[in-house]
Write a protein that binds this DNA or RNA. Structure first.
Lengths: 354, 354
DNA sequence: GTGAAAGCGCTAACAC
DNA sequence: GTGTTAGCGCTTTCAC
């Protein structure tokens, strides 16, 4: 492309020059030093005469030199960096954790490299690739799961931390994890609805599998029902994906049939928001006709109308502990640990005592 | 790290092997062919005997070989890829455009490489780096601005498209842009408020600069006021950043002083949501006491209570046109173009006729 | 059809 | 303090 572009005004050699990608060799030649000296300056290594350094920096500036990261990574043994592999873009809950992780990683003296993956991609595969291409010293999986992937995890040569999913079952000496006690937290949410006098409670959640967060939250729901001498009828569990749209559709559909309940526990705040809108669109009121409580504690619940009750997962604590666990493993070669944090019930105007 | 880990059970050579990063050389040796043959198989080049190909693939499979992207990029001249540089993570409006861009780019036969940048980073610098490291054939800037950066843009050797910010002023033959007519769209929003009988209108927006989107939206606001024989008092313009929190704080503060108006135009939906919550938290009703209309048309406005009126920027059209412009420039070497799309007024329960 | 060999731009010994 | 040089893992001529 550029070729053609330049052919149009080939008399202009200035532009030709501006487009050239300067290499370390060019900079060395232009500043009259060897390439290793340039490399030393670029990487802030010691033992370069102040004067030489200045000259090299000037040339670098003048020609807009940027080192080629491919070449750097190809050669470099280790880069003092930590990689965070995030599963699922556009997830408000993860976004808030990620932000805090970045800060903690940098505070710990490491660079932070974030890899965003969509749902279709394999996070462990991506991590393996990052490890040997970017030479990172540790990996944090945000929203990924290591369950049943022991074999692949073995192939990752640096300490790992699974954030928000337990990896205790993998039982690997380089894989830690940090989770919220989903079962207890979900129980708290439903307990709260019972306390507020609700008896006819619906649950909006994802596909229940024994070992994932959803399965655990479901267990917590059952625990609460059991403790209150009740059982959750299967027709009161609505399955949907983690989006407002899906939550809306699921609850719209059931309310459309004339079915009624006095409260909903949604296993994520975005589902809860969809559900809330479905309720008001049906002409019902929150919380007068139906109460609703979510899960996660994303910022948005505070700004919704009415303010949504939720069980907050402690984002900053998750972030800090994840990074702390990883740094310990990297720096002190500490053994893997699996920590569990508690959720926090946040009351909101969306739940009414009946 | 891994060293230490392995020393713990150095008798286990299996794990040692699993952690090794296989290179193209290893695969060549293990399958008894030359490295160029492996390279051909990996890249799907023709002229490899079916049998040889099969053998190589088997070995690759067996040893979980993944090519090193650094080495690949270092050597490769061009990669049939397009880079999208997104400024500002966690922006729902951009996220929806990005998703559609990815699809369009892949449909056009190119790979899509997304680079996420925070507000502090320089998007043009990042693009330049991506160009010579990843060998992309074109760049789309989502949310970046090329204004006043002609010099740096010249250094990018491939066609570019600025999405959502005009780059007409740069007047470069390889830089196109696609924008919404912010001025007209903002005018629509305020016109609508006037039509609904509002006279005391507040505006919540960002820092006004002559050439950016905010400045244009502000001009549109002034246009509408002028057309309705009025002027916007300076004390009715509230400046805040693009977040719910900022919108909330700004409107809370002013309502707290007892100041009142009958309608608010917020220059983004997230600001509008913050403002909406500030209004209801003050004990006022939307739309009975104060009407509100936002800007952007993110999904969330449909799920808010009450449904927020907004001016929708046509995300899919922006995405499609951006990609189309770029593909044309890449494939047919078409000259730069600057397109302007229209916004669409979306009525909502948040605006009341008075 | 397939292999040998020359680099891509850089880092890190090692020599001076 | 600074320069020379050997690769990192790959693609890509160019021979055969």
């Amino acid at each position: 492309m550029c070729r053609v572009r330049f052919r149009k005004d080939s008399g202009n050699s200035m532009r030709q020059q501006e487009t050239k990608n300067f290499t370390i060799k060019d900079i060395a030649r232009l500043s009259g030093v060897g390439i290793s000296t340039v490399s030393r300056v670029v990487n802030g290594h010691p033992y370069v005469k102040e004067e030489t350094k200045k000259r090299v920096l000037t040339v670098m500036e003048e020609y807009h030199y940027t080192p080629n990261a491919n070449a750097k990574n190809l050669k470099q043994i280790s880069a003092n960096a930590i990689s965070v592999v995030v599963r699922g873009t556009n997830n408000a809950f993860f976004a808030s954790i990620l932000e805090k992780m970045e800060r903690a990683i940098e505070a710990g003296g490491f660079q932070c490299r974030v890899t965003y993956l969509d749902e279709r991609s394999d996070e462990i595969d991506a991590a393996r690739r990052v490890c040997n291409e970017k030479k990172v010293q540790g990996v944090i999986f945000l929203g990924g799961s290591g369950v049943g992937r022991e074999k692949e995890l073995e192939a990752i040569p640096v300490p790992c931390v699974f954030s928000t999913e337990s990896a205790a079952a993998a039982n690997l000496e380089h894989v830690s994890s940090i989770t919220v006690d989903d079962r207890a937290a979900a129980k708290q949410a439903v307990d709260y609805l019972f306390e507020m006098g609700h008896r006819d409670i619906a649950v909006l959640g994802g596909v229940r599998e024994a070992l994932n967060n959803i399965g655990l939250r479901y267990q917590g729901v059952l625990d609460s029902f059991r403790e209150h001498g009740m059982t959750l009828p299967e027709e009161r569990y609505f399955t949907c994906l983690f989006s407002m749209e899906e939550g809306y559709n699921a609850i719209s559909r059931v309310l459309g049939t004339g079915e009624r309940f006095t409260a909903v526990f949604a296993m994520s705040d975005v589902m809860a928001i969809g559900a809330a809108k479905a309720i008001t669109d049906t002409g019902l009121s929150i919380p007068d006709d139906i109460s609703i409580i979510g899960y996660d504690g994303i910022d948005l619940v505070r700004y919704y109308n009415p303010t949504l009750a939720t069980v907050r997962q402690p984002a900053e604590e998750i972030a800090e502990k994840s990074v702390a666990l990883l740094l310990e493993a990297i720096e002190n070669d500490s053994p893997a640990r699996h920590m569990t944090l508690g959720g926090e019930l946040i009351a909101g105007a969306s739940v009414k005592r009946i």
